[in-house]
């Protein structure tokens, strides 16, 4: 096959076939269209950022968050967003996995010159994922990890004095979430999951600047830019949908976006409140993390997953608890989390 010229600059050799459009582009044009599309996602409508805003990039060391950290650093300079960027990493306590990827994040910290904050499940919950898996087995451990990570990111952001978290969720991830919410009939989440930015009164603002970025292009970008990222044994689910119909992913996001809720349905949805025990945003008396933690502490295995609605605002005696969530307690990056002492005291039984 003779080399195909780039369909944008018509001079250089095309090296990438864009999955979204089928467009064949050269390396430089690929960088430019990829970055410009992320910029467009960022500035569309009212825009997701405010000038001077402090923004934490949820950084796992994986490809998505690494490319996000890179692209945001570039765009922040190029378009003068005036953002104060931070890297925020959660250490789930998974030996041989997270300890390696955290090394990658530390490398990114140097490469991008961004301050890094690492918050561990161990310091926050008194449990590492290694210990949780020891207790609950492998089958359901993702539930714990997912619930704990979400809250840990918010708490890490609060400690950094940051009001906005950006994550590397890409178009493929969002399409998957749309399908999952349709299948579960979860109307409330379906409405939220396609939004670039989600925020309610009591939660920290979260945005997904890669909402329209395909996984393939993120990987291409990381490869061509020679970015430092970490991928482990990572080959669970097939991506068959994209092979059958390359535009399917963006089509699914658009169909999720066009779901509209009738007023009567919206009224029936649960109002948000704060957790009686730790003060984190919750749709029940206890937030999911506290409910799971109580199950773990009680030595229950899978029954911990059943949302036990223990209404008591006090944990049973001797149980470890999560420090109170204080959204505006700006503790500062260098200091340990306020409340750790309390948590440590709670660990010492008798």
């Amino acid at each position: 096959m003779p080399p195909t010229p780039c369909s944008l600059c018509h001079t250089a050799r095309a090296l990438v076939k864009r999955p979204k459009t089928g467009q064949q582009v050269c390396k430089d044009c690929f960088f430019e269209v990829f970055e410009t599309e992320v910029h467009n996602t960022i500035v569309e409508g009212k825009g997701i950022f405010e000038r001077g805003e402090k923004v934490a990039i949820g950084a796992s060391g994986g490809k998505d968050s690494t490319v996000l950290a890179h692209v945001l650093s570039v765009l922040n300079k190029r378009y003068h967003y005036g953002l104060d960027l931070f890297l925020l990493s959660i250490d789930e306590g998974i030996t041989g996995y997270r300890d390696d990827s955290l090394e990658t994040v530390k490398q990114n910290q140097i490469e991008y010159g961004l301050p890094l904050k690492i918050l561990s499940y161990n310091e926050l919950y008194g449990w590492t994922m290694d210990k949780i898996v020891e207790q609950v087995g492998r089958r359901n451990n993702c539930t714990f990890c997912g619930v704990f990570r979400r809250q840990a990111l918010d708490r890490g952001a609060a400690q950094l004095g940051v009001d906005h978290i950006v994550t590397g969720h890409n178009a493929d991830d969002i399409a998957e979430t749309v399908l999952m919410n349709i299948m579960r009939g979860d109307i409330a989440r379906l409405g939220r999951c396609t939004a670039v930015t989600t925020q309610s009164e009591d939660t920290i603002k979260r945005s997904k600047p890669f909402k329209y970025a395909y996984e393939k292009e993120i990987v291409m970008y990381a490869y061509f830019k020679k970015l430092t990222y970490f991928s482990t044994e990572c080959i669970y689910s097939p991506d068959d949908l994209e092979a059958i119909r390359p535009s399917a992913i963006v089509d699914i996001i658009h169909s999720g976006e066009s779901f509209q809720l009738e007023q009567s349905v919206q009224k029936g949805m649960k109002a948000m409140q704060t957790c009686l025990r730790c003060g984190y945003i919750s749709s029940n008396d206890l937030c999911k993390a506290c409910a799971l933690l109580e199950g773990l502490e009680a030595g229950l295995d899978r029954s911990a997953l059943r949302q036990t609605q223990a209404n008591s605002s006090n944990a049973p005696t001797g149980h470890r608890t999560i420090p109170m969530f204080e959204r505006y307690s700006n503790v500062g990056a260098s200091q340990p989390a306020e409340g750790i002492e309390k948590a440590v005291q709670a660990i010492e039984i008798k």
Binding site: E32, S73, K77, F224, Y229, F230, S231
Partner: peptide, 18 residues
């Protein structure tokens, strides 16, 4: 333009470390 990036990495862009 991308050429103005001043971020330099020494990685291979393949997602593994030595």
């Amino acid at each position: 333009m991308s050429t103005s990036d001043d971020i330099i990495t020494t990685s291979n862009g393949l997602g593994y470390t030595s």
